[in-house]
């Protein structure tokens, strides 16, 4: 009996889990828990994906996870920016063509990382600040 139930659970999870998760029908606590799991594993895009479905602006736990995500991204951002500064300084000092090319390659990757992290921070900020009520379009309700 338990074997059958577990098999059904596994198959059901494989087939239904992702569409069900994406529908946002599962309890908010599930999404908050999964967002925290993703954050623990440094999977920032996945964390943001779950936070979008976790009513982040309304729930304290979700806001905490989002703020923690912002802090972690900022810490990483500081590291990357310091590396960029260090590499730029080195580029100014070296004349060796091989080294210059290598430094420039690393700089490109570092800048990409900075852009990604800034994007995550912006998205998380929007989730924390998002108003629970949609903005009223005053022009639409103004009498003619």
């Amino acid at each position: 009996m338990p074997v059958g139930l577990n098999f059904l659970f596994r198959v059901g999870r494989k087939v239904l889990a992702e569409p069900l998760e994406d529908s946002g029908l599962l309890p908010g606590k599930y999404y908050r828990s999964q967002a925290l799991d993703a954050l623990t594993e440094n999977d920032f895009p996945e964390c943001l994906r779950y936070l979008k479905m976790a009513e982040t602006h309304r729930k304290t736990q979700a806001r905490m996870v989002a703020q923690l995500l912002i802090l972690r991204c900022r810490m990483l951002l500081a590291d990357h920016k310091s590396r960029i500064k260090d590499l730029t300084d080195r580029l100014g000092l070296t004349t060796d063509a091989d080294k210059v090319r290598r430094y420039e390659d690393i700089l490109t990757e570092e800048r990409k990382a900075v852009q990604l992290l800034e994007g995550y921070i912006r998205e998380a900020h929007n989730l924390v600040k998002k108003s629970p009520y949609p903005p009223v379009d005053h022009c639409a309700v103004r009498p003619a």
Partner: peptide, 24 residues
Amino acid sequence: HHITTGLLELIGVGVGMFRLDRRI
């Protein structure tokens, strides 16, 4: 399919949801 892994996964998610404050 690994039965025990699936069952442990289910238990893990359940326990994780109840211990959310502690995990944060």
